[in-house]
């Protein structure tokens, strides 16, 4: 190891850094919980709009999806944190000034809603149309048929791709460091500056991998055994 170990695996620094970064994990979890919650709600709504019979509604949903899939998340973060605040300060519209964590949640939600919408739409469309017809022929409204027949089946299909979304989002929370969110990468860089040693980055990498690798394994297994859409749980 020698020189390499001194710089990248400095045991003393690693020991000091890990507890600090574990505090930052709480921030990341916060970003993920709120980010995923809003992304899934908004994504589901947009996916339903995307398959609406009303053309305008379909268009609005398509525009949303293309817009947010086409934008770098880093730009979105910067705009929501700095871009809005700048105008907020100059005009006195204080609601435009968001603290880092809410700003990061908004950016992640908007962006990931677009991805989730496409996943939900693919899931819904993969359900045989006979299911909707059978439900409607029993007198269910479109909403009831979606809620009790289509979505419960679609959920099973979208779990593997949504797991991949979760993995991507965990990694993307690191982008929030550019807007001073005290998440893992941000804290690691701070400590790196103070100690003049890159070992905190190693510590950050270890923490990310501890979260992502098990999820990557889970996603791979889910994808492999993705049975027929109708296979009930536990079979």
């Amino acid at each position: 190891m020698g020189q390499f170990g001194r710089y990248y695996f400095n045991w003393d620094i690693l020991r000091d850094t890990l507890p600090e970064l574990l505090k930052a994990v709480v921030v990341v979890v916060e970003l993920l919980v709120f980010g995923l919650f809003f992304a899934f709600i908004l994504g589901l709504l947009i996916s339903l709009m995307r398959i609406s019979r009303v053309r305008i509604i379909r268009w609005l949903a398509a525009i949303y999806v293309d817009f947010f899939r086409g934008l770098p998340l880093l730009l979105l973060l910067t705009f929501i944190y700095y871009g809005l605040a700048l105008v907020g300060l100059q005009t006195g519209l204080r609601f435009l000034i968001l603290p880092p964590i809410p700003a990061a949640v908004v950016a992640l939600s908007l962006c990931y809603a677009a991805y989730s919408a496409e996943i939900f739409r693919a899931g819904i469309e993969s359900i045989h149309r006979g299911q909707m017809e059978a439900a409607r022929s029993l007198g269910m409204t479109y909403g009831q048929a979606m809620r009790f027949v289509i979505l419960p089946q679609a959920i099973k299909i979208v779990i593997p791709p949504l797991t991949n979304e979760l993995i991507a989002m965990i990694k993307d929370t690191a982008l929030a460091s550019v807007i001073t969110t005290p998440e893992i990468l941000f804290r690691a860089r701070e400590i790196m500056g103070v100690r003049a040693n890159p070992t905190p980055l190693t510590a950050a990498a270890i923490i990310y991998l501890v979260f992502t690798i098990p999820l990557i394994r889970v996603a791979a297994r889910l994808e492999k055994k993705k049975g027929s859409p109708g296979t009930p749980a536990g079979m």
Partner: peptide, 20 residues
């Protein structure tokens, strides 16, 4: 129409049972 459909049962060639 939802009210009317409640009075009309329909059975399909492909069964269309709810698999879940």
């Amino acid at each position: 129409q939802n009210k009317i459909r409640q009075r009309i049962g329909m059975v399909f060639q492909s069964f269309n049972l709810f698999p879940h």
